[in-house]
Amino acid sequence: MMLSVKDLNVYYGPIHAVKGVSFDVNQGEIVTLIGANGAGKSTILKTVSGLLKPKGGEVDFMDKKISGTAPHKIVELGIAHVPEGRRIFTKMTVEENLEMGAFTAPSASVEESKEQVFQRFPRLKERRKQTAGTLSGGEQQMLAMGRALMSKPSLMMLDEPSMGLAPILVEQVFDIIRELHEAGTTILLVEQNAQMALSIADRAYVLETGKISLSGTGRELAESESVRKAYLGG
């Protein structure tokens, strides 16, 4: 088991956002958490990457407890987080954004990782000296993913990577996720676009107001009556 979340409880002040959630991600899988806005999906990812501290339960990565560990140490362990809304550093150049992604990596390896990212995202290479704020939405999503790849993660968590993108760009983003997966990265994907997410996921969990209401393989859930009604538009 690569990532194991056990009976996780997270609060925002008095609000109980995640209520006893448990799930696993095995090495080499694409696992997706789907659910409506406010179901607690992003909160779970932020707790895994250490930005939020759980009130109860724990998060294990590679059989070691990581809940309570500082976020920068969790990155060093091999978890990269592509946040909701991309959150690239808009005032820094494309290249500097990538360097920030490699913050925990030995500096000798940074140039090589940069070249690998440029190979995957040629548009970023063209715009390497531009400030990231001048990129289009699609390019910014590429940068956010490229930046996360710079730390050579074994587990990549993506939070709503399709948000705000035109359908053709959504296809591209999912193609890239598939490629990364084929190259050996384990993926934990959070999406509101349930159809796309279920189409590439090995396994999926449905989250409703802080609790897991359903789980199964991507195909099982895509065919399930209740999921179709609630998330796939009938």
């Binding site: 930005l51 987080h81 946040p83 920030m100 730390s151």
Partner: peptide
Amino acid sequence: KAMRAVSEDMGAAQMMG
């Protein structure tokens, strides 16, 4: 560069390690 990153978005900077 880390100073600039933290000043723009502390949470994202933490996610970078």
